[in-house]
Simulated scan of single mutants.
Amino acid sequence: MRGLRPTVAAPLADDPLTAGDAARAVEAELGRVLDAALGRARDADPVSARDIADRVASLVLRGGKRLRTAFVWCGWRAAGGSGDATSVLRTGAALELLQGCALIHDDLMDGSPLRRGAPAVHVDLAGLHEDARMAGSSEAFATSSAVLAGDLALAWADDLLTETALGSPYGARLHREWQAMRGEMVAGQYRDLHAQATRASGVDEAVDIATLKTALYTVERPLALGAVLAGAGTAVLGALRPAGRCAGLAFQLRDDLLGAFGDPAVTGKPADEDLRTRKLTYLLAIGSGLAEASGDLEAADLLAPGAPSVSDDAVCRMRAELERTGARAAVESRIAELAGAGLRHFDRTGADPSVRREFAAVVERASGTAPERTGEAA
Rank of each mutant, 00 (worst) to 15 (best):
Y190W: 13
A172F: 07
A153E: 14
P169Y: 00
Y190F: 12
D158T: 07
A142Y: 06
G202V: 06
A172Q: 12
G171F: 05
Q189W: 00
D159H: 01
V203A: 12
V186D: 05
M185K: 00
R176T: 07
A180N: 07
R176N: 03
G136C: 05
F141D: 02
S201H: 11
R182N: 09
V147Q: 07
T164H: 03
A155L: 15
R199G: 07
G167A: 14
G171H: 06
E139W: 15
A157R: 11
A155M: 13
T164P: 04
A132G: 09
A140S: 07
V203P: 03
A200C: 12
S145L: 10
S168F: 11
G167S: 03
Q189T: 11
M185Q: 08
A155D: 09
L154E: 13
A180T: 11
G183N: 05
D158Y: 07
R199F: 08
Y170M: 00
V186Q: 09
T162C: 11
G188W: 07
H194P: 02
Q179V: 14
A197N: 06
H175K: 03
A132D: 14
D192T: 11
S168T: 00
Q179G: 05
G136W: 00
T143P: 08
A172Y: 02
G202H: 02
D158F: 10
G150A: 12
M181G: 02
Q196P: 01
L193R: 06
E177L: 07
W178Q: 04
G202M: 05
H175A: 02
L174T: 03
G136N: 01
M185E: 12
E163G: 04
D158P: 07
Y170C: 04
A153W: 09
W178H: 02
H175C: 01
Q179K: 09
G136Q: 08
Y170H: 14
H194C: 08
T143K: 07
Q196I: 03
S145A: 15
A153R: 10
A142P: 00
Q189I: 08
E205P: 01
A140V: 02
D204V: 14
A157W: 04
A155S: 15
T164V: 10
L161Q: 13
A149Y: 06
L154G: 02
G202P: 09
L174Y: 06
L174V: 10
L193I: 13
T198H: 14
Y170E: 11
Q179T: 13
F141N: 06
M181L: 13
H194W: 10
E177G: 03
S137Q: 14
T164A: 05
A195C: 12
A172K: 09
A165R: 06
V203T: 12
S168K: 04
L174N: 04
E139C: 00
E205D: 10
R173T: 09
A180W: 08
R173C: 04
H194Y: 12
E184C: 11
A132Q: 14
F141R: 04
Y170N: 10
R182P: 01
V147E: 05
G202L: 01
S138E: 15
V186T: 12
A187S: 14
Q196W: 08
T164D: 00
E163L: 06
E205Q: 11
L161A: 10
A155V: 15
R182H: 12
G188T: 11
T164K: 05
L148S: 11
E163M: 05
D159P: 01
D192K: 10
R199E: 13
M185Y: 01
L160I: 05
A180K: 03
